[in-house]
Every structure is written in C-alpha cells, then in structure tokens.
Design a protein around this nucleic acid. Sequence first.
DNA 1: GCCAACGTTGGC
DNA 2: GCCAACGTTGGC
Length: 156
Amino acid sequence: MNYWLMKSEPDEVSVDDAFAAPRHTVPWTGVRNYQARNFMRDQMRVGDGVLFYHSSCAEPGIVGIAEVASTPYPDPTQFDRKSPWYDAASKPDAPRWLLVDVKVLEKTRNLTLPELREDPALADLVVLRKGNRLSITPVEARHWRHLLKKLGASSA
DNA sequence: GCCAACGTTGGC
DNA sequence: GCCAACGTTGGC
C-alpha cells in the first residue's frame, strides 16, 4: 500500500466535483509530466491512499481523502483534438499518457498550505519541498497517518 | 550530450 | 500579474 498527494485545480475538477461524480470517481486526466505519469503507470495500485489537494487557487490545501480506483489506462484527452490536453505526437497504438481513476472517500476541511508548512512533523513532505511542481507526489506512511489524524478523517 | 531559450507550474 | 523554480525542446 502506497500513499500519494494529487493536485487538482478546483476550477477544473474540485473535490466537490469529484465527490458528485458517479461512484465519487473521476479519471485523473491532463497529467502531462513524465514523472507524474510514471507514478500512475508503475507504482500506483488499486486501493492506494490519495490526498486530494487543491492547487492554483485562493486557498491551496488538502481537501479530501481518496483512493486509487483503477489500474492505469490511456488518458483519452490526449487523442481529442479539441481538448486542451491534446497531444498530436501520441498515437493510439502507443499512448504516451496514462491515468488512473480516483475515488473520493471523504471530503475534509481544507488543511491549508500554511498549516502544512508550520507543522514540524511535515517538514519533509515531498510536496512542501522548495520548488516542487509535481502534480503527483508520494507520501510516506508516517506523513499519511499524521495527516489523517490531523484531519480527523474516518477513512484512516 | 550540452545547454540556452522557452514554456509551465503554482504560490503570492 | 509577478516571478522563482523546474521541465522540455532543439540547435549544435
């Protein structure tokens, strides 16, 4: 069992949007970074824990507990000419971009970025590292436990 | 394979 | 809108 933090822009897909979707599940479309793709392709397993994070918004922070809900499969938006994530260089018989489905288990309060930064127990959380821009980052088990306790999450 | 130029992310 | 940090591209 691995744990992850996955960023979504709430203007695109918020935790409310994801929770309102059928089975509380959304395909994690639009990742166009190889390192993030590789996490989904090579390391994620169904049932892995996910922290749902809102980025590029007024109050960035962790807003929900989720889980990996599928094995990896090709991101359909890469083949859609009208999609902002269209990739002309990716061919259907050799898809460049894969994704997984993510199921929201529980919405939480917004554990904001400033709160995360001021907690010494989270000092080396990957997403807080200087200059980090990865939209998917691994979370250590001790950080996961600490964060779930902090959130009072029932999905622990 | 190097690296400068350019593009993107994302907090502020 | 600014800009630091980082990833990607492409000429050589």
